[in-house]
Simulated assay, not measured.
Amino acid sequence: MTQRASAIGRERGRWSAHEISLDDAEDLDGLADFMHDISAELVIAFIEEDDEYLGIVRIDGDTSDPRVFLSDHRVLFTSALADRLFAGALPPAGSTNIDDESDDLLAGATPAGDIDLLADVGTDADALLELITEKGLLPADVIFAISERAGCADILDEIGN
Score class of each variant (00 low, 15 high):
Leu81Met: 14
Glu49Gly: 08
Phe46Asp: 08
His73Leu: 04
Thr63Asp: 15
Asp60Trp: 00
Asn97Tyr: 10
Ile59Ala: 00
Glu101Ile: 12
Asp83Gln: 13
Glu52Ala: 15
Arg74Gln: 11
Asp100His: 12
Ser102Tyr: 11
Phe77Asn: 12
Gly94Ile: 06
Ala93Ser: 09
Pro92Tyr: 08
Leu42His: 06
Asp60Pro: 00
Glu48Ile: 09
Ala89Ser: 15
Gly61Cys: 11
Asn97Leu: 13
Leu70Val: 02
Ser95Gln: 13
Glu101Ala: 14
Thr78Leu: 15
Ala82Asn: 03
Asn97Ala: 14
His73Val: 01
Asp60Arg: 02
Val57Gly: 01
Phe69Ser: 04
Gly94Trp: 07
Ser102Thr: 14
Glu101Trp: 11
Glu52Trp: 14
Ile56Tyr: 10
Ser71Leu: 08
Phe77Arg: 14
Leu54Pro: 01
Leu85Gln: 00
His73Arg: 10
Glu49Gln: 15
Phe77Pro: 00
Phe69Pro: 05
Tyr53Ile: 07
Thr78Tyr: 15
Ala89Trp: 01
Ser79Tyr: 02
Arg58Met: 07
Ile59Lys: 00
Ala89Gln: 05
Asp60Gly: 07
Ile44Glu: 01
Glu52His: 15
Glu41Ala: 12
Arg84Gln: 10
Asp60Lys: 01
Gly88Val: 01
Glu52Phe: 12
Leu42Tyr: 05
Leu76Asp: 04
Asp99His: 13
Glu101Cys: 10
Asp103Glu: 11
Glu101Asp: 13
Asp99Gln: 11
Ile44Phe: 06
Leu76His: 06
Asp60Cys: 04
Arg74Phe: 10
Leu54Glu: 02
Arg58Ala: 05
Leu70Glu: 04
Asp51Thr: 12
Asp51Gly: 09
Leu70Ser: 06
Ile98Lys: 07
Asp100Arg: 15
Ile47His: 02
Ala45Gly: 11
Leu42Ser: 07
Leu76Glu: 05
Gly94Pro: 02
Thr78Asn: 15
Ser95Glu: 09
Gly55Asn: 06
Glu41Lys: 09
Asp65Ala: 14
Ala89Ile: 08
Pro91Asn: 07
Leu90Trp: 01
Gly88Thr: 08
Ile98Thr: 09
Phe46Thr: 09
Ile44Pro: 01
Glu101Gly: 09
Leu70Ile: 05
Leu54Arg: 04
Asp72Gly: 02
Ala87His: 10
Thr63His: 09
Leu76Cys: 06
Arg58Glu: 05
Ile47Glu: 01
Glu49Cys: 09
Asp83Arg: 11
Asp50Thr: 15
Gly61His: 06
Pro66His: 02
Ser95Trp: 13
Gly55Lys: 03
Asp62Pro: 09
Ala80Arg: 12
Asp60Gln: 07
Thr96Pro: 00
Leu90Cys: 03
Phe69Gln: 03
Arg58Thr: 02
Ile44His: 03
Arg58His: 07
Ser71Lys: 08
Ser95Lys: 13
